[in-house]
Amino acid sequence: MPTYQITVNGVSQSVDVAADTPLLWVLRDHLDLVGTKYGCGINVCSACTVHVDGTAMRSCTMTLEQVEGKSITTIEGLSEFGEHPVQQAWKEIDVPQCGYCQAGQIMTASAFLEGNPNPTEDEIKNAMNGNICRCASYNRIYRAVEKAAENMR
């Protein structure tokens, strides 16, 4: 099996896995970073969203070859103690119901707000439309993104 050198949450890691192993499962099973969630495995629900060089990407179909030399951030690395403004907004609005999809939601929202600190309603809805929440906590996700934008200004 090939060896890959990847950087996750600022730490350089050496991983021996088959070339087709998605980043998602490397994070979860090899690096014990289980905050990133498995939802669909085919790039449509975004539960597995992480940042790759600051961009929100779905890790369930991403190979290590694609991320070698890049900086990967997972929910565990977004902030040290959950103090990132998006995490704080999620807490303030009390977004989660079951909570399973929320790491992916937070990772999508945080990358989005980094590039667009003053989003319109449509921009927020477009940005978050890729992330499924089966509990349908969409009203609160929307408000939390608005709140986070406010907090970041």
Binding site: D32, L33, V34, G35, T36, K37, Y38, T74, I75, E76, L78, S79, F81, G82, Q87, W90, K91, D94, P96, G99, Y100, Q102, A103, I106
Partner: peptide
């Protein structure tokens, strides 16, 4: 009175909470 989800801090920081996370 409003009470936040008792697991809120663990959820927003990606702590192992779910069955799929259990090891």
């Amino acid at each position: 009175k409003d009470a936040q989800n008792v697991d809120i801090d663990e959820i927003i920081t990606g702590k192992p909470l779910f069955g799929l996370d259990y090891k």
